[in-house]
């Protein structure tokens, strides 16, 4: 597959920003653009993209989910690839759109064609663009949380670790149960806050037990959940999206941290 993909020397990538990155943490979007450009891609950001529809889909609202899926597909139809800095949203586009739109042969075909072009950012860089190293530096002892959809729907495990190993000054210490859910689960965290809290408590326990000072992951939803819990517990762990570190864009305050008066 890599060979075939390499045939396109300068592919045009449509960046699926994801709602959370768009609204909460644009710096992740700019980090993604930088990494994609370093990997030899031309990046465009269609303005007509909104939400992938996952909240509706996972709440049983199929008709809105379908409409949003078709909106996303329409926004990205002209690109060689569609890349998202999130395993959860990429999983939705790649695996769930074909299922959601599978009833009608016409939409099914569009969804399948679309799905083949979709990748999560880090796995795209490593698996498709065969990126082996980045030029960033980041002095920190980090640990990495494997977000569920990325890990189990898209098989993302080695790719971020491979690239992180090339970041100057960075060490990575694996925490216990890195592959276990942080309790975010999208709307789950709002519908079942008590259970969600019990799960994220275990996660922050594992993070602090790893004696690292920086937590990385590839999904902003999970990161906001863990960062929010860590700061509520008064634990001083810097939380960042892995793309920011790989792109060398760590001058912004970490997730959930203010400017501390530097503005």
């Amino acid at each position: 597959m890599a060979g075939k993909n390499q045939a396109i020397s300068t592919p045009t990538v449509g960046l699926f920003v994801t709602c959370l990155v768009d609204l909460i943490r644009p710096s992740v979007g700019f980090a993604a653009v930088k990494l994609l450009e370093e990997a030899g891609c031309r990046v465009e950001v269609p303005q007509s993209q909104t939400c992938c529809g996952q909240p509706a889909y996972n709440s049983g609202d199929k008709s809105d989910a379908r409409a949003l899926a078709l909106n996303t597909i329409a926004a990205f139809e002209g690109f060689d690839y569609v890349v998202a800095p999130s395993g959860s949203c990429a999983g939705m586009l790649k695996h769930h759109y074909p299922e959601l739109l599978g009833d009608d042969p016409e939409t099914a075909e569009r969804a399948n064609k679309f799905a083949q072009k979709v990748y999560e950012l880090i796995s795209f860089l490593v698996d498709v663009r065969e990126m082996k190293a980045v030029s960033a530096a980041f002095e920190a002892n980090t640990t990495y949380h494997d977000s569920c959809a990325g890990l189990r729907e898209l098989g993302i495990k080695k790719q971020p670790r491979e690239l992180l190993a090339s970041v100057k000054g960075l060490t990575l210490t694996e925490m216990d149960e890195a592959e276990i859910c942080c309790g975010f689960g999208g709307t789950f965290s709002i519908k079942y806050p008590d259970i969600s809290n019990a799960i994220v408590e275990k996660k922050t326990g594992n993070i602090t037990a790893s004696k690292t000072t920086c937590l990385l992951a590839g999904d902003l939803g999970c990161l906001m959940n863990m960062a929010g819990k860590l700061s509520r517990e008064g634990k001083r762990v810097e939380v960042r999206h892995v793309a920011e570190v790989l792109a060398g864009m760590t001058d912004t305050p970490a997730i959930g941290q203010g400017d501390e008066g530097t503005q």
Partner: peptide, 21 residues
Amino acid sequence: GWTRYRDLPAPQGKTFQQLWR
């Protein structure tokens, strides 16, 4: 439901779409 147990990270400022445009 969220803030009972954890802080909610605030937006950085403008949206990515605004900054990109």
